[in-house]
């Protein structure tokens, strides 16, 4: 499999191609992901999320400059929405990330959501693994501009940064049940705008209401992307959070949870496709559908009846 070899050796074109193949559900997808897996696990993964126009891309652009000063290499997966009508997309995050387009140690990949609703695209997780295997020290995921409940990023990032702006001050209260819960770090971007202090205060009040005593209280960083203000501080806090996770086995626990979810996802996928191969088009299946349509049978009993024939109880699972 030379695309995997190329990627591991640091060939940027191989990496780019691998991401496409995986994203397009190409027949080589599984081989590629299997091939790179042992090379993953070294990158630290940071997620950036927030509403559209909150300045995520510009912030990431500035942050990358600070990270690069420490000699660390960076991979970025930036997600923009896919049209539910045409399937097309305008991917414009690169426009804000000009500073690094000629830096060979920064790899930026734009992705369309392609029907995914959680703020990421379906292949985001895989793209992160490929960047990790490629050898990037830091991988940054930038979500599509989100509303309140698109929180998939937290399942994929080690540290999650929620970006707010002063204009969202009034609504902080209302969105607190969604993305406000996933932040390890809050950023109040565009903090030269009026009401930035009020936004900070509201976030603080919200955090004070948390009655479970937490070992990590999300810090609130004020930034202005335009002038890079607060970006150094943001990087310091990111490093602190990483350190916090690396103490004891917190990070290991988070990642174990992620692996568990992954293997369950794959198992579900395999079971589903195998079952489907067996069942689809059979007379039993068609007849059952007919009975349910006629209201002679309910869908729950129908499903049970069909699956009886697959004999799910036949296998003892070894301890």
């Amino acid at each position: 499999m030379n695309i995997v070899e190329g990627l591991i050796k640091g060939d940027r074109r191989a990496l780019a191609r691998a991401i496409s193949l995986v994203e397009n559900e190409d027949s080589s997808k599984n081989e590629i992901l299997k091939g790179v897996y042992t090379h993953t696990g070294k990158a630290y993964i940071i997620g950036f999320t927030g509403s559209p126009g909150s300045g995520k891309s510009s912030l990431v652009d500035k942050l990358v400059s600070v990270i690069r000063r420490e000699g660390l290499t960076v991979g970025i997966v930036a997600i923009d929405p896919t049209s539910p009508f045409t399937g097309g997309a305008i991917l414009g995050d690169r426009i804000r990330m000009q500073e690094h387009t000629e830096d060979k140690d920064v790899f930026i990949r734009s992705m369309g959501t392609r029907g995914s609703l959680g703020g990421l695209s379906r292949a985001t997780k895989d793209a992160v693994q490929l960047l990790d295997a490629f050898g990037k020290d830091i991988v940054i995921i930038e979500t599509v501009g989100v509303g309140q409940s698109e929180v998939d990023v937290v399942k994929n990032a080690d540290t999650t940064v929620v970006v707010l702006t002063p204009a969202s001050g009034d609504s902080v209260q209302t969105i607190k049940a969604g993305i406000m819960e996933i932040a390890n770090i809050f950023v109040v971007n565009k903090s030269d705008l009026p009401n930035a202090d009020r936004t900070r205060t509201e976030i603080n009040l919200m955090l004070d209401l948390d009655n479970k005593k937490k070992e990590w209280r999300p810090p609130i960083i004020s930034t202005i992307s335009l002038t890079s203000e607060g970006i150094e501080e943001l990087w310091e806090e990111l490093k602190k959070h990483r350190q916090f996770l690396e103490e004891g086995d917190r990070l290991a626990a988070i990642r174990r949870e992620r692996v568990k979810r992954e293997i369950v996802d794959y198992m579900e996928h395999i079971i589903k496709s195998r079952l489907w191969e067996k069942i689809s088009g059979t007379t039993l299946f068609e007849k059952t559908i007919e009975k349910i349509s006629q209201r002679d049978l309910d869908p729950i009993s129908g499903a049970e009846k069909v699956l009886e024939r697959v004999n799910l109880d036949n296998h003892e699972f070894p301890e």
Binding site: R12, R17, S83, A89, L91, Q98, S110
Partner: peptide, 27 residues
């Protein structure tokens, strides 16, 4: 976009080097 394609837009004032690097990374 309306024809169902994914369009990466780079913005203004790009050098040829930047354009080609973006084309490679975005495959």
């Amino acid at each position: 976009r309306d024809a169902g394609m994914e369009v990466v837009y780079t913005g203004l004032h790009q050098t040829p080097e930047q354009v080609v690097e973006a084309a490679i990374q975005e495959d």
